[in-house]
Amino acid sequence: MVKTRKRLLWFGVALILLGATSTLLWKTFFYKEKAYFAILPVKITRANLPCVDVMVEGKTYPVVIDLGSRFGLYVNTGVLKNFNKKRCGIEKWRNLRGKGFKYPKYTLSKLEMGSLIFQKPVVVSTPEKEGSVCVIWQGENEEKLPSENIGHIGRELLKNVNLLFDIKRSVTIATNDWDVLKSEGYEMDSFIKVPFSLKRNGMIVRVETDLGQLKLILDTGSTLTLLKDSMLPKDKEVSIGYHGLSSMNSGRFVVGGVDFGSQELTFLKMTDKLRDIDGLLGMDFIQNHVIYVDFSKKILYIQPPKE
């Protein structure tokens, strides 16, 4: 009787191990390799940020694709109040200048972006007046105009897919299938491979400039390429832009060993707590180059500049 019980026990353990192994094999050879593809038309906002449509509860809303935001989604309070949602806590964070924020967060049932479906995304509620310090408007009256989007979709959701940005063609493509990208006209084997490190602050890329090597966060939610104002050089020509910020032109801008030519660098006062970065690589660079973000391998693929 005892031997029979032991045999049944070992048989049960074997079944559990077999089930776990089968699940692991399924995830390894099927789930992770499953191809996905979605073409997302992009509109550029007045602040020069990429905006795509998402669907919540059968209705379509414009949101900014924001690789600089660690959140999955943040939405204006006035719009969010119309969604069916479940409170799931409080989100605290600080912006580049060190200003602190604390707002409630909620869980939605799902979010659709093209053919992609994100289940139970967490959304942070933010007042519309709380604009990003990285958004540089085109004129003093621009902020009085109605908002062009309801919020931003960020890395917590976007890191689950690989994204190609082709702003000149007004498109973002979510896919892990290079054959599909080739059929769309993108020769990925010719792109420059640039590794990035993914930290809490963002996706950090190393760039060589006239000011030396910089560690910049790839940020589609930033209008300009921004550096800490503490890096403002005293021995180089500096100008003041329409936005009232100091800027300079770097004659070289080397990413992945390739010089992309001159690049405007704008200086902004940032908190001293951002010790592991020098600034942001913004849309003034991203919009001019096709960039494929491979989150799974932590590699950027950038189309080489035309000679």
Rank of each mutant, 00 (worst) to 15 (best):
F165N: 01
I167Y: 08
K168E: 09
R169P: 00
S170I: 01
S170M: 07
T172P: 00
I173T: 02
A174F: 02
A174L: 05
T175L: 05
T175F: 04
N176I: 02
D177G: 13
W178C: 00
W178E: 04
D179K: 15
D179N: 15
D179H: 15
V180F: 09
L181H: 07
L181G: 05
L181W: 03
K182H: 12
K182Y: 12
S183H: 03
S183W: 03
S183N: 15
E184Y: 11
E184V: 03
E187L: 14
E187G: 07
M188G: 12
D189Q: 12
D189R: 11
S190W: 02
F191I: 02
F191C: 00
I192P: 12
K193R: 14
P195V: 08
P195W: 06
K199G: 09
R200S: 05
N201G: 01
M203R: 06
M203Q: 10
M203W: 02
I204R: 05
V205G: 00
R206I: 01
V207M: 08
V207C: 11
E208V: 13
E208N: 06
E208Q: 14
T209V: 11
D210P: 04
L211P: 05
L211F: 09
G212F: 13
Q213T: 11
Q213F: 12
L214K: 07
L214T: 01
K215D: 14
K215T: 02
L216Y: 05
I217F: 08
D219M: 12
T220D: 06
G221D: 03
G221I: 13
G221T: 01
S222N: 15
L224D: 04
T225E: 09
T225W: 13
L226E: 08
L226I: 15
L226F: 15
L227T: 08
K228T: 01
S230L: 15
S230F: 14
M231T: 01
M231N: 09
M231I: 05
L232M: 07
L232N: 11
P233M: 14
D235F: 06
D235I: 03
V238N: 09
V238R: 13
I240M: 04
I240Y: 03
I240F: 02
